[in-house]
């Protein structure tokens, strides 16, 4: 069962990326997932920190073009590109520890029998540009610090004022430091107010809406930019789709594109995180498939849907031979 394998992988990486550093495990500073570097003893660092960082960021690469420093900044970018090409959106659906945290909230909500909040299609569409705005924010602000004299307290703008992983993930390492308001000066105070307030709102959002933060995640945009040259493919045999809508309804990100696509084979959309929930719930044989190069990793089938959604036979009910 794909969803069980995913659960195992997610939790393995949650432990590795949250506590790995304490045991000497570190996956570097260019991970295409929200492995928060503010967690003491983390096992890897989100690339967004490197992208904004004063020593590894884009502005450093531009300012030191041709030098070792410039190349080092590009090294992180290169590593990020390689990692992204290798696994593409699997980073989001299978590895990202912050994604796993969100899935825990969804699990809790379902256990409590509280149903999911629904966003209208138009609201969902209106949210799409937000992650581009956030990406621009985290690129432009460091450039302004480096070249336009913006106060240095604006550094790491996304991590320090927006990202809810920064206040929340260190809690797993026993640190409440990032939940505090920083009264050092006006900029730090405003940033910390934003950060804590967004984290509070997001926490509730994540509870009521599956993968709520992922709707705004700028990492999705960066990963999506590389989809065409990645060996990871998510494809749909459009001519065999019956349009039952299971893919759309089951999608944690409420993606409609897979269901609506009627002409194009490639359906790895911007918000997709390759959790394969849609493929698991598609009852049409071979309509949805996830490939790595030419190899098919998983593909939809009626048999799989039966195994996935029909509970094991209990005494007294009808036994069905598969």
């Amino acid at each position: 069962m794909v969803f069980k394998l995913r659960l195992i992988v997610q939790h393995l990486f949650f432990v590795l990326l949250t506590y790995g550093g304490r045991f000497g495990f570190h996956m570097g500073f260019a991970l295409p997932c929200f492995s928060c570097p503010f967690v003491m003893g983390c096992g890897g660092s989100c690339y967004l920190l490197s992208l904004q960082g004063n020593w590894w960021g884009l502005q450093m690469a531009l300012a030191n073009w041709g030098t070792v420093m410039g190349l080092q900044a590009l090294y992180y970018l290169g590593l990020f590109v390689l990692l992204t090409l290798a696994l593409n959106k699997f980073w989001c659906g299978w590895i990202c520890p912050f994604g796993t945290l969100q899935d825990w909230f969804t699990y809790l909500r379902r256990r409590l029998g509280i149903r999911e909040a629904q966003l209208s299609w138009s609201a969902r569409d209106r949210l799409k540009p937000v992650k581009y705005i956030l990406l621009a924010y985290m690129i432009v602000v460091p450039l302004l610090i480096a070249h336009a004299g913006l106060h240095y307290d604006f550094h790491l703008p996304f991590c320090r004022s927006i990202c809810p992983a920064k206040p929340l993930m260190p809690l797993f390492a026993g640190s409440t430091r990032h939940l505090a308001l920083d009264f050092t000066n006006t900029v730090t105070l405003v940033f910390s107010i934003l950060s804590v307030a967004i984290a509070g709102g997001m926490l509730v959002g994540m509870f009521f809406k599956e993968r709520f933060f992922c709707l705004f995640c700028p990492m999705l945009v960066l990963i999506h930019l590389l989809r065409k040259i990645s060996p990871v493919r998510f494809e749909k045999e459009v001519g065999a789709c019956l349009g039952c809508g299971n893919c759309r309804r089951n999608c944690p990100m409420d993606i409609r594109d897979v269901h609506e696509q009627k002409t194009d084979k490639a359906v790895l959309s911007e918000d997709c995180m390759l959790c394969m929930t849609c493929t698991e719930s598609c009852p049409a044989d071979g309509v949805l498939s996830v490939r790595f190069f030419k190899w098919r990793l998983f593909s939809s089938s009626r048999d799989y849907v039966a195994r996935r959604f029909i509970k094991p036979h209990k005494a007294g009910s009808v036994k069905v031979k598969v």
């Binding site: 909040a117 206040p167 409440t176 939940l179 920083d182 050092t184 804590v196 984290a199």
Partner: peptide
């Protein structure tokens, strides 16, 4: 670290959470 106020932050965090929960229950569910 000297200017960090954890209590203020936790209150704001909880306040926003309550506000967001109220908004969600009333308008979005």
């Amino acid at each position: 670290s000297a200017h960090l106020k954890r209590l203020h932050g936790c209150l704001l965090f909880a306040g926003m959470a309550v506000l967001a929960a109220g908004f969600t229950v009333i308008f979005k569910r």
